[in-house]
Design a protein around this nucleic acid. Structure first.
Length: 877
RNA sequence: GGGCGCGUAGCUCAGUGGGAGAGCACUCGCCUUACAAGCGAGGGGUCGCAGGUUCGAAACCUGCCGCGCCCACCA
């Protein structure tokens, strides 16, 4: 890429000709932090506005999805801060139990070590080391992004205070019977060697094979269908539906289980679907959740035939085989005995995988801790139903309800070392004691007491985040002031993982007070074709890379500009370049202002003393402030960006700045007034854009104001006194003339610099007579002299005509083609409007405003037709 | 299997009952003294298909086709 700065020697700039973000950003960020601008106070009298950051995992560095998440939060926080709220954005990180442990275990594996080689204590020490490195990198990235977080309140889920919160709520739930220990079938990862909750399991459709196996002999035999033949070693029954006539005579009898010699009963259970397979199900209570339920109902033994690594432990020829080796081996053995009745392969069915390592999950019977989610989930659902918490966009609330209304109990114990250890001690006499945060263990190891080896699911501590970070369980000033937090910003992908659980625990711990008033959900960052980012695809964006090349502002603007509520955000390098260009546009507009002596000085002049052009831009500004406010309140960040982009680029740069040039050049009081308006408009524009692109706006705002900081400058207020419809109409008419003349010049190949003598007619009729000098300046028209010889007459509107002396022949054919196109368009419009107005049903039923609009359109089209026809007739042949 | 959503310009997406839009890409012309990371002008869409409701449908309803996501213990 060759991007050579081009600075003109004729410039005497206050600012360099191009915006260089790198230099500005780091300097400004350090200034903001050292000035304490991001620190919130718990005892100011401003209204509170608080956001707790979704704590990034300490598993690595921030990706572009975090950059999106942070940009949105920072924009919300910065705007509220400017609006005079006591704005707290609380930063922190998550220990991310299984994920982080996996990262460190992989590092160890690189050295040929396992965590067991180090032992629990050393291993945990090692993870803390990793946390320090990774966490440091993350904090650095947040600074580069410009996150206006309160660093004095940074938290980590394994801080002492947060660990106390964990222990406190565990004890409370335990004492109330909402946490219990039970032997259940849970999701087990044979590679991570730990239990997983339902949501840590991803289902995918995998190829398997469905085999039908004959159990027993002759008339008393029964055929079962299964995709998991290897578990037959652990079968303790066969189940059929109670109403299934085919098998009624067999219920209560026993069959011999092949390969084992064991005899197992045939039971009737309503769970069985008679229409599926053979209508008979092998029952393996220790290795299948449904079978476990059946086993419970029929008092069947639970026969475990696999160890924690998925290796067969049942005595016999298959002992020692991995579960995936055992399956074909057992099918082969059964086939040799002639017991395979039918095979169907491939048979596609849903299989669960560990969300961390993708290993196929094994249902496993084991003793684990659970949260009884019933009452908690009910409360979490109700809080959204009754509006205490609002989900944005509202459509996603359906997913939330579907989840909380059907929640299973939550398995919270993990056979890991990195995390909050379960605060339960077991005594020599079988005692079980849950220890509260300020209590001592009930006895020593020497006395035969030992603490539960397991740690808690990482989501247990993150579920407390909105209040543990504010000091709960203590009644702190922060908690009183900032809870409930104002809004939670996160991706829809963790609506269940995290949001629902924060709702459950927040409502429980704080007596029905919701953890946040609003949940604002955004989507995932994708590439420019809407494809998911993945390393194998090579389309992953590193936010730091963009920040270095285009600036943090450009990166943020690119993300915010794609952020429609709840939907995915496509980004590309080209778009980021466009954002960088936008920042540069702002830079140069300000540079122009400063070069012309425009900066912020006192209050605006009275509107009566201002030119139409000045009143027009102020009116536009007023409208933009209103729109942006609405869009911010609706979390429509893409629209905020779009509105401001077009206001800045189209209205301010392309029109207002161009219109001010002749005025400024002329000097005098008019120029003074315009300078003040230009300074004001840019000042307000920087404020409006500051939440999204904080750095460049700070730099330019300071340049315009001669000091201070936009970080705490007041957010613009929509002032109706600035609305000026008359000025807007006038400038629209002016724009039409200018555009039309430019169109002609372009079509005719007239060089942009070439001056043309012209006579403008009908400006007074259009109410823009006063703007004639501006129009002439913008399209380089000179007054017509004595030797004026019109070679083209442009009919710009019904009123306005422009006669041009091009001193040469014009391209008549091109102009005719253009006019005929216009005529066709006008005729079509006329026919359409007349059709409508001739329709009695339309005129009778449509609202009057709509009918009037059609009438106006018809009148305009008719006038257009007259004008175009006249122009056509006037064309030389 | 259940649920949700999407299909509008080459690409990514706004638009949700009354004249088809934006950014990027594309074409043409320009170093016009803020900005070539720029300026001006322009081309391009029977709004997935088929019915229906309505004076009027890109939008509302039904069906179909195509795509995506979430949830799920049918072996």
């Amino acid at each position: 890429m060759t991007e050579t700065p081009q600075t003109r020697s004729t410039d005497a700039p206050t600012l360099p000709g191009q915006y260089q973000p790198g230099e500005v950003e780091q300097r400004r960020y350090e200034q903001w932090v050292s000035a304490g601008l991001f620190e919130a106070s718990a005892d100011s009298d401003r209204p509170p506005y608080a956001i707790v950051i979704p704590p990034p995992n300490v598993t690595g560095s921030l990706h572009v999805g975090h950059a999106l998440d942070h940009t949105i939060q920072d924009a919300l926080i910065r705007r509220k801060r400017m609006q005079g709220f006591e704005a707290l954005w609380l930063p922190g990180m998550d220990h991310a139990g299984i994920a982080t442990q996996n990262v460190v275990e992989r590092q160890l594996a690189g050295q040929g070590l396992s965590r067991h080689d180090l032992g629990r204590e050393k291993f945990v020490e090692r993870v803390w080391q990793w946390k320090a490195e990774s966490g440091g990198a993350i904090l650095g990235q947040m600074r580069r992004l410009g996150d206006s977080v309160d660093w004095s309140r940074e938290r980590f889920t394994m801080d002492e205070g947060l660990s106390r919160a964990v222990q406190t709520i565990f004890k409370r739930l335990y004492d109330e019977g909402l946490i219990y220990r039970a032997e259940r079938i849970i999701n087990w990862c044979p590679r991570c060697l730990t239990a997983l909750s339902d949501i840590e399991v991803e289902h995918s459709d995998d190829d398997g094979e469905l085999v039908s196996i004959r159990y027993g002999e002759g008339d008393n035999s029964i055929v079962v269908a299964t995709t998991r033949a290897e578990t037959m070693l652990g079968d303790t029954a066969v189940a059929v539906h109670p109403d299934d006539e085919r098998y009624k005579h067999l219920v209560g009898t026993e069959v011999e289980l092949p390969l084992t010699g064991r005899r197992i009963p045939i039971v009737a259970d309503a769970h069985v679907d008679p229409a599926f397979g053979t209508g008979a199900v092998k029952v393996t209570p220790a290795h299948d959740p449904n079978d476990f339920e059946i086993g419970q109902r029929h008092s069947l033994p639970n026969l475990t035939i696999m160890d924690e690594r998925g290796v067969i432990t049942a005595h016999g020829p298959f002992e020692g085989l991995d579960r995936f080796e055992a399956r074909p081996a057992i099918v082969d053995a059964l086939r040799e005995q002639g017991r395979i009745v039918a095979e169907k392969r491939p048979y596609v069915h849903a299989v669960g995988h560990c969300s961390r390592c993708k290993t196929t999950v094994e249902p496993r019977l084991s003793l684990q801790w659970f949260v009884n989610t019933g009452p908690l989930a009910k409360a979490a659902g109700d809080a959204v139903r009754d509006g205490r918490t609002r989900i944005e966009p509202a459509e996603l609330a359906k997913r939330y309800f579907a989840w909380v209304d059907n929640m299973h109990d939550w398995c919270i114990s993990r056979q890991l070392w990195w995390g909050h250890r379960i605060p339960v001690w077991y005594g020599p006499q079988g005692e079980v004691v849950c220890v509260g945060p300020d209590e001592r263990p009930p006895g020593t190891e020497e006395q035969g007491w030992r603490q539960d080896e397991d740690v808690l699911d990482t989501w247990f501590s993150s579920a407390l985040w909105p209040f543990s970070t504010l000091g709960w369980p203590d009644d702190t000033a922060d908690l009183r002031r900032f809870y409930p937090t104002s809004v939670l910003v996160t991706g829809y992908d963790i609506l269940f993982f995290w949001v629902a659980r924060m709702m459950m625990f927040g409502l429980y711990a704080l007596d029905g007070r919701q953890p946040f008033d609003v949940v604002a959900l955004h989507g995932m960052v994708r590439d420019q074709f809407g494809k998911k980012m993945s390393k194998s695809f090579g389309n992953v964006v590193d936010p730091l890379d963009w920040i270095e090349r285009f600036g943090a502002d450009a990166t943020r603007f690119t993300l915010a500009r794609g952020a429609n509520p709840g939907s995915d955000v496509p980004v590309s390098e080209e778009w980021c370049q466009g954002s960088r260009n936008f920042c540069n546009k702002l830079w140069n507009a300000t540079r122009f202002a400063l070069m012309n002596g425009a900066h912020v000085q006192g209050d605006l002049p009275d509107p009566a003393e201002l030119s139409t052009v000045d009143r027009w831009i102020l009116s536009r500004l007023r409208q933009v402030v209103g729109e942006v406010d609405e869009q911010f309140e609706a979390y429509e960040f893409a629209k905020v960006c779009d509105t401001l982009y077009h206001f800045a680029w189209d209205d301010v740069c392309d029109w207002y700045v161009e219109l001010t040039k002749p005025v400024l050049a002329a000097g005098g009081p008019a120029a003074d007034a315009t300078r003040r308006v230009l300074g004001h408009v840019l000042d307000q524009l920087m404020r409006l854009l500051h939440p999204v692109i904080p750095f460049v706006t700070e730099e330019l705002w300071i340049a315009l104001n001669g000091g201070g900081t936009v970080v705490t400058a007041a957010w613009p207020v929509a002032d109706d006194a600035l609305l000026d419809p008359a000025a807007e109409t006038e400038i629209a008419a002016l724009q039409k003339v200018v555009t039309e003349v430019r169109r002609f010049r372009s079509d005719q190949g007239l060089k942009p610099g070439q001056r043309v003598a012209a006579r403008l007619g009908g400006l007074a009729g259009a109410g823009i007579a006063a703007h004639e000098p501006l129009i002439r300046a913008l399209v380089r028209l000179d007054p017509a002299g004595a030797d004026f010889a019109a070679t083209a007459t442009l009919a710009v509107s019904a009123a306005v005509t422009v006669e041009l002396d091009t001193r040469g022949s014009i391209d008549v054919a091109a102009e005719r083609a253009r006019l005929e196109k216009d005529r066709a368009a006008a005729e079509k419009e006329i026919a359409q409007c007349r059709g409508k107005l001739g329709n009695a049903a339309f005129v009778g039923k449509a609202p009057e405003a709509v009918v009037n609009k059609i009438k106006d359109r018809l009148a305009a089209a008719e006038a257009d037709l007259v004008r175009v026809s006249a122009a056509l007739a006037a064309l030389p042949s």
